[in-house]
Amino acid sequence: MIGSHDVLLNVENLTMMYGARVGCEEVSFDLWPGEVLGIVGESGSGKSTLLRCISGQVAPTHGAINYKTRANGVRDLFTGMSEPERRFLMRTDWAFVHQNPRDGLRMSVSAGANIGERLMAVGQRHYGNIRATAQDWLGKVEIADERLDDLPSTFSGGMQQRLQIARNLVTSPRLVFMDEPTGGLDVSVQAKLLDLLRGLVQDLGLSVVIVTHDLAVARLLSHRLMVMQQGRVVESGLTDQVLDDPQHPYTQLLVSSILQA
């Protein structure tokens, strides 16, 4: 089933420099359809820089990011695509879930408008249909029907995060980027959100790149894991393998730092 012709996202020797300082360096990996890749590491290890590059938000200093588009074959994100094409991809085929839902939501318009925005951006102009789809998605992320016309600011943190996920998945993207999606939520809400995410990923066959510093989240969601330190990938492999039998000293430190309940 897995062959190189199936690779959805291929990253090669990606380096991002902030002046003389290193953001991330010489990162390479492949992501297959339906696969969840976790990126773990401490603060400042280059996780978020890597995510911003591969999600098309900033151009890397050098390196290639090849994406298998629906219609036009494999294209490099920055050298093989124009800005309008990239932006179109970002709001249709891709999704980005921010750590803070306020970064990903439009706080001044209702939940329905938030979910409907992507639909209107791709040209839907029928209010009734847009609203019905929004209602449907609200149900999928377990938010009560009657909250459709409420502002996100009246939602709890966990609900806002679920709304952000609904807003992102409404155009049926194939690739989802998540930056610490459970950060800032309390443990029981985290568990519920993780459950929901796992269900959605499985049902929709999504490919996911998830950045987290929480190894429990990584173990629960991801199939494969990359461990980053000081901008470099120090270890990668199947999640269970990396967490149960860490080889690199930094990974060993990371795994041994988990509090045992």
Binding site: G112, G116, E117, G123, I130
Partner: peptide, 14 residues
């Protein structure tokens, strides 16, 4: 990219 303009109209109707 004018989808956002319709978000405003959507919000009006809702």
């Amino acid at each position: 990219e004018y989808g956002l303009m319709h978000v405003k109209l959507y919000e009006d109707i809702s």
